[in-house]
Amino acid sequence: MRLLTHNMLSSNIKGVSSGFPLRIEVEKVVEKQVEMNADFLRNMFPKIEWKAFAYAAKALGYSDLPEEADSSQLNSQDFLQKFHHALLELHLEEGVLICPETGRRFPVNRGIPNMLLHEDEV
């Protein structure tokens, strides 16, 4: 699971108000190089909740991202590189996503988060 996906996921248990961002418990992180596309990064930037993103990157052991970011930084090649790396090249391969409100644990196995709920949670 990439951090872009983490940024799009939230806990949907009955009664939970925001359920975002899911906390991360890491067992195994994998890095896979992909070619950078600056347009994609620029288009995606406004959709990203930066604080949650920087938190997730740090959880996966990458702390080069600034705590806060605004669109003017998209002109910097250095910033784009870091943004690209954290967004698309880091994968949570094994671990757990945890609902910030209920503590419900969603396992991530072989890079696949399991967001399925039990009947009494829907």
Binding site: T5, I112, M115
Partner: peptide
């Protein structure tokens, strides 16, 4: 090729942010 795969019912867990 790569796609992000999620075990979920339709789009449960993605509906708010996506």
């Amino acid at each position: 090729v790569h796609a992000e795969v999620i075990s979920t019912d339709i789009a449960l867990g993605l509906e708010k942010r996506l």
